[in-house]
Each structure stands twice: as C-alpha cells, then as structure tokens.
C-alpha cells in the first residue's frame, strides 16, 4: 500500500487575530513518504506542523491521520490520536526531572497504559535504535544537545506513531552534533516511517526527501522532488529563497 495517505491536511486555515498565517493549505503525505518543508522565517512552517496535532488550534480545515479526522471528537479522542503523531521540537523539551528511561516510558505508561516491564523494554529498544541506550539512567541535563534530541525522538517513537513531525530538529545543535540526529532520521525513513520535516538541512533533503515543499506567506508556493526544487525551481520566490539560503 505505497499510496495510502497517512497524513492529509485539508484546506487548513490559521488566523492569529487579524493575520491569516495559513491560507487554505492542502497537503497529502503517503505512507513511508518523507516530505521536506522549506520557506522563509514567518512563512508558517511551524504553525502548519503544530496544527497537525492541534498544539495550535486550526481556524478551519481538517487534519486526517490514517483516515481519521483529528478535528472531530472529544479531548480524550485527541489525546489518543496524538499518540499516532510523533513530534520533535527544535528545543528537545525533555523532562529535566526524569531520567532518560523515564522520559521515554512516561507516555507509554500513562497514555498507552503499558506495563512497566513492557514500557521499559520498548524504551530500551528505541534508545538502542537512536544510539542512546547507554545513557538510559542519565538525566537530560547531563547530555549534549544531539543526545537530547535523539532521546526526544525515541520518546516519540516508543508510542508507535504513524507519522513523525520534525520542527527544525537540528537548528539548536552545534554543527558537529547535527550529523548524529540526521542519521537517526535517515534510519527512520529507511524503516518506512512517514515523516514531515521542517529544516534547513538541504543536503539531508537531497539525499532523503521524496518531496520538497516551499512555503511562503502561508501558502505552498511550489512542490516537487528535491531535484526539481533545488535543481530547477519554477517560481521566482523559490529561486530567491534558495539563492539566499545557499549564500
């Protein structure tokens, strides 16, 4: 089922007061696809991502995850559906008062109601996958940014999400730590995870993305394969943006 849509954004609109930040965005991400989102600061990339799990409440439109509309239903339905949507933040947001292991087991225990044994085992698997199993007993404050971000990825993965959203996952990292996080994301892609990635790592996009989306002023200006967007952008705004970021 390569074409099964995992995440559908349907005429998503978001207003903050008088400002319309997202203007009727439509986007369909199929199973196993990695969609890479670029665009100037303030174009609405984060807002779009945050609407996908309703951290930001859409003004109108629908968000459909594996056939289920997350805009419908109660708060409890939303909590359940959020389990299927992993989110990775620029600032990691690990829980500083808990060990790495507890960070990864908390939602498994409280939201998924897994047993301690099961949650611990699953957490160790995920920490293994991101290369952080040896730090299971450490506290977030003792880890580098790159290590924290990999733990944050494990925290999301442990819930078996259907989609993973990344909002500038490497932007807060020292350059030498970026690679370790991108590698984890590449592994994830090769395992078939559906991913939406907002980032400035164009090299990663060329290598890993199935599709690149250029956003500006709250609309999707242009989309295509990495070769199309980076090699021969059609829209003037895309060209201007790319020439700016590539220096």
């Amino acid at each position: 089922m390569a074409n099964r849509p995992m995440l559908e954004i349907v005429s998503l609109e978001k207003r903050f007061g008088p400002n319309t930040i997202l203007k009727k965005i439509d986007l369909k991400v199929t199973e196993g696809e990695l969609v890479f989102v670029i665009g100037p600061s303030g174009s609405g990339k984060s807002t779009m991502l945050r609407c996908c799990n309703r951290l930001e409440e859409p003004t109108s439109g629908d968000i459909i995850v594996d056939g289920r509309n997350i805009m419908a239903g109660t708060r409890r339905d939303l909590d359940r559906m959020r389990l299927q949507i992993g989110m990775v933040f620029q600032g990691f947001h690990l829980y500083p008062h808990m060990s790495v292991l507890k960070n990864v087991t908390l939602a498994q225990r409280k939201a998924l109601k897994r047993s301690k044994t099961e949650a611990d085992a699953r957490a160790m698997d995920m920490l293994e996958q991101v290369g952080m199993a040896h730090k299971a007993d450490a506290y977030p404050g003792e880890l580098s940014g790159g290590q924290q971000q990999r733990v944050a990825i494990a925290r999301s993965l442990a819930l078996d999400p259907k989609v993973m959203l990344f909002d500038e996952p490497t932007s807060a990292l020292d350059p030498e730590l970026v690679g370790s996080v991108l590698k984890v994301m590449k592994d994830l892609k090769s395992k078939g995870m559906t991913m939406v990635v907002v980032s400035h790592e164009m090299g990663f996009a060329r290598e890993t993305a199935d599709r690149v989306i250029f956003m500006d002023g709250g609309v999707v200006v242009e989309q295509g394969t990495p070769d199309e967007i980076f090699g021969a952008p059609k829209a003037e705004r895309t060209r201007a943006f790319l020439s700016r970021v590539s220096g």
Binding site: M87, K110, A111, R155, L159
Partner: peptide
C-alpha cells in the same frame, strides 16, 4: 515547551500537570 512535549505524546492536561 514542557506542556507541549507532554501533550504531544498523548498525555491529558491533568497527567501533564501531575507528572511533568
């Protein structure tokens, strides 16, 4: 960000408050 991270993993507001 602590609220957001916790709630994005499916924790309810009350669980987020209590545990995080």
């Amino acid at each position: 960000g602590q609220w957001e991270a916790a709630e994005s993993t499916g924790l309810s507001p009350a669980q987020t408050l209590i545990h995080v």
